[in-house]
Structure formats: C-alpha cells, structure tokens
C-alpha cells in the first residue's frame, strides 16, 4: 500500500500548499508514489487518518486551532510544518507584542465577533514537530527533497547555512558590501534559492533566523549604513518577526 500524505491549513495564505501544486512536472510522479489522503486545496475527497506524512501550513491563532493541531498530531506518523507561519507565526505574529484588542477595534466594525487568540504562534509551540521547512513560501526543491527523503527513511538535505552562502555559491554580488543595501542575509537561513539579492535587493528574512544569528551586530551595521531605528525595527519585522531571535532584535529598536 502506498504511503499516505495529508496537507493541513491553519492561519495562512495558502501559498505554501500551492508550492506542492506548483511542483507540476513532479506532481504526477508524487501522486503515483503516495496517496494524497487529505489536501483540500487540490481535492474535496478526504480519507480518514492515520497519515504517514502530514504537511502543516499556517500558525495557531484560535482556540479551535489549538485543538485541531493536537488531533492532527495524533493522526500523523510524521508531521512536517511548512512555511513562515507554521514555523515562526507568520506576519500575523506582529500582533504578539501589541494590544490585540486595539487592533481588532481599529480594523473591524464589530470586533466582538472576532474569536482569535492574542498571539499567533508556530505549530511547534503546541505539538512536537518532526521537520520544519522554512520560507514564505517554502522552496519547491526543499519540499520534494523532504518528501523523497522521508519516504526512503533518510535525513533530508536541508542546509542550515546563511543566505550569504547561497549568494556566494551562485556568484551573486553582495548588496551590503557593494551597494550599502541593508540585507537580512547574514542572519537568515538559506534555502530560497537566492531570490532577492540576485536581483539587487536585500534579503527579507523569509526563511527566518539561521542558527547562531548575531542580530545585534547586523543591526549595528544597518545603523552604520544609515538605517534609522524604525527601518531597522521593520527589517526584523517581516514574515518571520515572531521567531525569537528576530522578535528580540525588533524589540530593541521599538518605541
């Protein structure tokens, strides 16, 4: 019997699930290799658990989601979180250090109907996670590598190096050194395929903090390049703002 694959959505934009459909050439082969048992973005047909591999997109932002992820964990042999929301809380985690009630009142005419937690948190804050795929969205090659490796029982090759290594492997000119453009690359985990620096833009940190991220020194360098406090705060306040290393650095430049 073929292994079963399930895809789950929490608070998110669906972009990471879409990466699976974006696999195009490999998608048919994947469908032959696994039984896609639950993937609402692709099909209404649903099969009951347990599942061999669950891919989980999105962050936990409601009490209902707290319960739902626990059930999915119970139903899944391997649970892989995919994307910045599932691994760091997503852009919606910007509310974590703020007055959530004030946000609700500012945005919604009837905020009393909004039933959401005060925080947006990654899946790993609620249940054990076997693997995390970073990114906003995730990288298609990393997704296929992870599924391939897990099906064969080997460790996926997911580098933990900085975005700078990707730039240098590709021969991309450093936007900080050559152009004085603030870039999150030195503290950000690589894996996106060098998307922004190769077109002359600073890295946005979509893949979240690399291990050992020296955010304090990088922030000091941003200041030396002429970035003001607010700019530095916002550089650490993108889709992975909820990751502890970035949240702490962001807080140092807030207010």
């Amino acid at each position: 019997m073929k292994p079963t694959l399930a895809v789950w959505k929490f608070s998110s934009c669906d972009g990471c699930q879409l990466t699976l459909l974006d696999c195009e050439d490999e998608l048919l082969e994947l469908a032959e290799t696994v039984t896609i048992a639950h993937f609402l973005e692709a099909t209404r047909s649903r099969q009951p658990g347990p599942y061999d591999i669950s891919l989980v997109e999105g962050s936990v932002t409601t009490a209902g989601e707290v319960e739902r992820i626990r059930q999915i964990r119970r139903d899944s042999r391997l649970l892989v979180t995919i994307g910045a929301c599932a691994t760091a809380g997503g852009v919606q985690a910007l509310r974590n250090a703020r007055d959530h009630a004030a946000f609700k009142a500012a945005v919604y005419p009837s905020p009393q109907f909004i039933d959401a937690l005060d925080t947006s948190t990654p899946i790993a804050d609620h249940v054990p996670v076997d693997f995390e795929l970073r990114g906003c969205p995730i990288d298609k090659r990393q997704l296929l590598e992870t599924i391939t490796a897990l099906l064969k029982g080997r460790k996926p090759v997911l580098p933990d190096y900085s975005q700078c290594v990707e730039c240098k492997l590709a021969g991309t000119v450093c936007v900080m050194v050559a152009h004085a453009t603030p870039c999150m690359g030195p503290v950000t985990q690589g894996g996106c395929g060098n998307l922004c620096p190769r077109v002359g833009r600073g890295c946005y940190g979509c893949f979240g903090p690399k291990e050992n991220a020296n955010t304090e020194m990088l922030a000091a360098e941003f200041a030396a390049l002429g970035a003001d406090r607010r700019t530095i705060r916002d550089l650490f306040g993108n889709v992975t703002a909820g990751a502890p290393a970035f949240a702490a650095e962001r807080a140092r430049h807030d207010g």
Binding site: L169, C174, M217
Partner: peptide
Amino acid sequence: CLSCANCTMVCPTCFCNTLEDRS
C-alpha cells in the same frame, strides 16, 4: 562575527566541501 561564511566563500584557498546525496 555573523558566522555568515562570506569570508570562506570569497577566500581563494578555502577548499572545504561537503557531499550531498540526492535521490
């Protein structure tokens, strides 16, 4: 130090490499 590895990447003598298996 950011441990970003830029120095080793641009160094003309840093030769370290790793092997990756793809399937």
